[in-house]
Design a binder for these strands. Structure first.
Lengths: 171, 171
DNA sequence: CGATGATAATCAGTAATACTGATTATCAGG
DNA sequence: CCTGATAATCAGTATTACTGATTATCATCG
């Protein structure tokens, strides 16, 4: 806490006091990254006791929504690449939450199914996820929360559709 | 592209067609993470030719804004932990963009200074950063862009002030 | 029918990132 | 001067996801 500035005049002091940088707070990139990190942390923390990481929850949710689909399809939904999906499905299989069964029409593929146990776990996980988000967003008005979701959705849809997206996975 | 669903009826088809999952698109956590990843990619891509990664740009910006401060202080501004800062400052020093000088009052600390070269590079980098953001956000109205920034700022300030924040760095 | 090119899952190796913990030098307070 | 805290650093580790190669299978075309 010793020195603050060596050669700058002590003027503007807004959030800067908190150790935040005014110019970075104007960069959507910085803001997105930091808020994404924080909410993910909250997810990990709350889903942890259930034996799930956020990535597992994402995959289970997709399976619940779309029914049994292949690993490749799941990857496209959650934007995780094929090699990473192998590990995630391995994890979930070890936990007894999914099963790889043979695909009815394509023997190269695995049809991934949720187990009964997964359905129970998912119910709890959905609940936790909602509570994480509620808590994380509680500093916003309900209107802002809705706006945020809509705007982000627009961004994500725009940036994960055309392009090379769907081939890749980085998440 | 073979199977879509094995046991779900083919009804809802909105963004799902694009391989996106309806239920995840309702999770702010998922949306934040995916949009953060995409914009960071854009940053890396555009700053790359300048020899900078996004993390370097953040540090340089803070130094420009706050004047010479210690590594620890920089870390608190950009939320990067002390051990990681060592490497970032090493990088920047190698590139001739910053110098570690002795701190006027605390010999444990290093006072980190921008070089003249850094100031030139930063001018270009700011320009590129603005263009990255403009491009990334162009699918939104100007009003939405502003709302997004304000809302995110509120989130970041809320989640990086009290708490244990400032001790940590994950970004 | 048989060859060719594409696709699904997998594995091995690699790179990037950031953490924990220990170390050294230094500070601040009694 | 002794003690506890702090700044920077380093070594080791964990996480994460990538690239590229491999194997099995599919789909097409002649």
């Amino acid at each position: 806490m010793a020195l603050k500035k060596l050669d700058k005049k002590p003027e503007e002091t807004r959030e800067t006091e908190l150790g935040l940088s005014e110019c970075l707070l104007d960069r959507t990139g910085f803001l997105l990254k930091k808020s994404a990190l924080r909410i993910q942390e909250a997810y990990e923390e709350r889903l942890g006791p259930l034996g799930l990481a956020a990535k597992h929850y994402g995959v289970l949710s997709v399976l619940e929504e779309r029914g049994s689909i292949t690993q490749h399809e799941i990857g496209k939904c959650v934007y995780v690449d094929r090699t990473t999906m192998v590990g995630i499905i391995d994890d979930l299989e070890k936990k007894g939450l999914v099963e790889r069964k043979e695909h009815p029409t394509d023997r190269r593929s695995h049809a991934v199914y949720l187990t009964a146990k997964a359905k129970e776990v998912l119910a709890k996980a959905h609940h936790l996820a909602s509570s994480v988000e509620k808590q994380f967003l509680e500093c916003l008005s309900v209107k802002e929360q809705k706006e945020l979701r809509q705007i982000l959705r627009k961004l994500v849809v725009a940036h994960y559709s055309s392009t090379k997206a769907g081939e890749r996975g980085e998440g």
